[in-house]
Design a protein around this nucleic acid. Structure first.
Lengths: 206, 206
DNA sequence: CGTTGCATTGAACCCTCGTTCAATGCATAT
DNA sequence: ATATGCATTGAACGAGGGTTCAATGCAACG
């Protein structure tokens, strides 16, 4: 098996897949070129051949993590696609985070790296804004339709502020799930979020 | 100056101070024994003499970060001390996080490390629970006094759930401030939090 | 079939890090 | 003043990381 050639796209995918496995298991700090090569069943030199440096490999990995796995749409797509309520959207995102602890953990790693690294930081900021803008536009749409009975309590608060708060609820949940998945009761949390944020509680999804 | 002796406590403090400076500036990943020694103006061997390993040094650093700087009480102390409302407490924590970006960033680093490292993880889980319990007990007290007019919307939701949500609002804010301090409008955020979480808005602190 | 191009290998290189340890020197006790 | 103990030094070591590169081999083309 080793030694045979493969088309570039396929090989890059193979390497990124191995990198993802290593990164989720060992964390970003424990993710080394040697280990990735080992897991991929390839030689270290080949990684430097397809991605020219470790830095670029990790950037590609971040891209693939942000892009979402097949069948796991990012919120941006989820927002633009369906006609779901904001409440259901937030609930879906929370459940999504809880179901995918390892990806969340990896994202926390990237977030931590992005705090100091300009490139990673820029990329994450862009993603964050995309995320928030998508949420906001849906909030505006919902408000205009007068649904969710949200007019009362939210009066006077900008849609941007609401979006930021909702994002905090999602990310705050992710942060806790990342470090203490067992000590987190999803349903109880969602119930509290419903009561706090929306006048009408979200019907529990069966 | 170098070569002179010092009492153990003093020297440890000196080293930890240098470690803190390095860690906030370079991140946890860029925090190396050599750099700490350099910043502290000491020899590398001395670090291994007072803390027996890098791991223990970082644990001590985490402890000092969690303990809070002088004049910067942790929420646990803030809760037990004053008779402030929950609303004001949350607001204070949010402003606290925004004012101390570097400490928040360092905590994000530790959080990311704690996801994989058992010792750091355990320590952070303990701290998180302390934090949440303190919040919850104050929520219970407030509910009992019938203040904040929180009975309506919060009916049926456990104090624990409320505490978790409030913590998410604090940590979610911290997460964004860590990576994008400029793109975060504190007052707007606090206004949104007030509207979302409490029936009666928090009067802005002058 | 021979040749050319390029993917692939794996060992080697250099760097940095954490740790160790014999030598040094300061401060205290005698 | 001398001796003892321990804080302190800084060079050295081994491990492990990312990157490089000459050698190798596969596959397409003439």
């Amino acid at each position: 098996m080793p030694g045979t050639k493969a088309p570039e796209a396929e090989r890059r995918e193979q390497i990124l897949s191995a990198a993802f496995r290593v990164a989720t298991r060992e964390g970003l700090e424990g993710t080394t070129m040697l280990r990735i090569a080992d897991v991929a069943g390839l030689s270290p030199g080949l990684l430097a051949f397809h991605f020219k440096s470790k830095r670029l490999l990790l950037r590609a990995l971040l891209e693939s993590v942000l892009g979402g796995a097949p069948g796991r749409p990012t919120i941006a797509t989820a927002v633009s696609v369906g006609r779901v309520t904001v409440a259901k959207l937030v609930e879906a995102e929370i459940r999504h985070a809880c179901a995918d602890v390892w990806r969340v953990r990896l994202l926390v790693d990237f977030w931590s790296a992005g705090v100091r690294d300009v490139e990673f930081g820029d990329r994450l900021r862009v993603e964050y804004r995309r995320y928030r803008d998508a949420l906001r536009s849906r909030i505006v749409a919902t408000q205009r339709e007068g649904r969710d009975g949200a007019d009362g309590d939210w009066a006077g608060v900008s849609a941007d502020g609401i979006a930021t708060v909702l994002l905090s609820l999602i990310h705050g949940c992710a942060l806790q799930v990342a470090i203490d998945p067992d000590g987190f009761d999803i349903d109880s949390y969602i119930a509290a979020v419903s009561a706090a944020v929306l006048s009408s509680p979200i019907p529990a999804s069966t």
